[in-house]
Amino acid sequence: MSAIENVAPEDQPVEAVPKRAMTIGSGTSFVVLLLLLIVPLFAKNFIIFQLTMLLIYGLAVLALNILTGGSGQFSLGQSAFYAVGAYTTAVLMEHLNINYALTLPIAGLVCFAFGFLFGQPALRLSGVYLALATFALATAMPQLLKLNFLEHWTGGVQGLVVTKPDAPFGLPMSQDMWLYYFTLAITLAIYIFSVNLLRSRSGRAFMAIRDNEIAASAMGVDVALYKTLAFGVSAGITGVAGGLGAIAVQFVAPDSYTITLAISLFLGMVVGGVGWLPGSIIGSAFIIFVPNIAEGISKGLSGAVFGVLLFLIIFLVPHGARQIAIVGQQLIGKLRKN
């Protein structure tokens, strides 16, 4: 074997997204926020529940976006972190009677620690290896949750039932509506945190690693620290989303958190546009509503529809919703000139 055979140029994991292209203008953000605030007032409880799930999956996709779009690492194992968050919340609420709002930061911290620790071996892995390790994690997670000696806490195969909280201070709101606004508040806080994180010194370090790991380390970026940090933050946010998901669905069971969930979240990120944070909510809408439509046509079809759409996106609009948004913006600009 010759020596040149063993030297390979570093593959680029994801296409670089400029920092300013990661968010949207304040005008658009304001309109979206207003819509999110007003719509539930005129909607039925089931619709409100779906909107809550939209925000929750949006958070999970956002978390993956920070990891992949920000630091250029892959994860096919987000469902595992989501599951840990959901179980943490469920166990704390049902076994220790802790207030639901307090369980969320705990779920976030537990998942941050879990992600940070899982990120330790992940340090040595890049690209396909990392995808492989996280894929294995996601596949193994349901079996880990079914373990016998955890059964007292996790309820084994049966899972746990979670009680839905009432609106506090006697507010005249249904449980669903209260949970929606509660979720919206948390989502906003985390979104603002994420935007600021990516604009900060740490965010620039993430992006330097994403664009060229060797160059980044040569310029003094602590690659090991920032890679695990990105993993931890991403896992932490996913954990909060998982906790909220457990409260909203009122039920946790091992088989809700299979590799299918991880694939959905990954798909949501690609649809929304890798590295474009507002796209997370579009991706989340996609993974919630498209399966419903597909299942309506034929049972078991959602996987095939997902797959075909994913291929179409890869071939036609590789930057997902961001690309469409940019094209739309340019069109509007042209119309204005005329």
Binding site: P13, F74, L301, G303, A304, G307, V308, L310, F311
Partner: peptide, 20 residues
């Protein structure tokens, strides 16, 4: 294409074959 696109392609193939 970047690695991410290829991983997405394999995941899509996985979903299509399994579901069909």
């Amino acid at each position: 294409a970047p690695i991410l696109t290829n991983v997405a392609g394999f995941i899509a193939l996985f979903a299509i074959i399994n579901s069909s």
